[in-house]
Design a protein around this nucleic acid. Sequence first.
DNA 1: TCGTTTAGTTATCTTTTGATAACTAAATAG
DNA 2: CTATTTAGTTATCAAAAGATAACTAAACGA
Lengths: 142, 142
Amino acid sequence: MNKNKLFQQFVRFTTSVHQVTYDMTKEIRIENVTTVQYKILELITVSQPVTLSEISECLHLSLPNASRELKKLIQYQLCEKIIDPNDRRKFDIRLTEEGTVLMNKVFQQLEINFQERINNLSEPELKEIQNAFEILQTKFFA
Amino acid sequence: MNKNKLFQQFVRFTTSVHQVTYDMTKEIRIENVTTVQYKILELITVSQPVTLSEISECLHLSLPNASRELKKLIQYQLCEKIIDPNDRRKFDIRLTEEGTVLMNKVFQQLEINFQERINNLSEPELKEIQNAFEILQTKFFA
DNA sequence: TCGTTTAGTTATCTTTTGATAACTAAATAG
DNA sequence: CTATTTAGTTATCAAAAGATAACTAAACGA
């Protein structure tokens, strides 16, 4: 196996992934919510409940900056803190009712964009793609 | 095929890709070069020669902002304009000697990071990965 | 030739993001 | 019980990135 060729393929591939995910999300813009704030919402949505430290780590934000941005999302009533009874320094963060409704809409739109992309593919092709996701996820992007 | 499951797999997958590419590039920091400027350098490197409009479009920068950032890269002598003789409004952008040396180093480092990731994989696994890249690139992220 | 479009520039302003210091309050460890 | 660590906050400053208006100069089209 030519590992340099594989590397070049990897570079092209990741570029495409970034391009496509950008295109799929670019139309999604929530009022008053900046890019970073949206990323936080996305993270909460998929791994709720989450602590501030986790947000900070996953999104590579300093704790002060994560705290500041979260504060705004709480002001907008899109998420809320639930203090951990076992450790009152910590708290879990969840979407509010309103935030849940909003993020459901967002993910529905995302899924529509996704379905459009795979619309013209045959059943065996879909199987291939599923398989490819799985292989890369477990063996490379683990 | 359960398309909703596939969508969820896609979401997890793209998250991982972003995570891994972030980790692989985070240590790379060129003096005085900001994130956007680095993105521009990367683009020039892989698709040289390139026009300002192409940079603007590919990186989703307005033309004025792209122009401003490019100007700085030219000041740092990392790239240069080559005016198109057929259309003197346009120009091609290329890396300078110095820029080429720098970006070679960057890509070498990237490749080292990449090789480390695939180090523990067997030859058949590498083949699988190569195949997975190819399928996703041609059938999904095209 | 003249108006229009294209490609890019310059200047300016705002918003967003990043960094850091100094802080509180709770938990934990010796 | 005290010292330290952990988890997060608040305030402040600086840098980066985004948006827009007004511009130049070349090319193009009728």
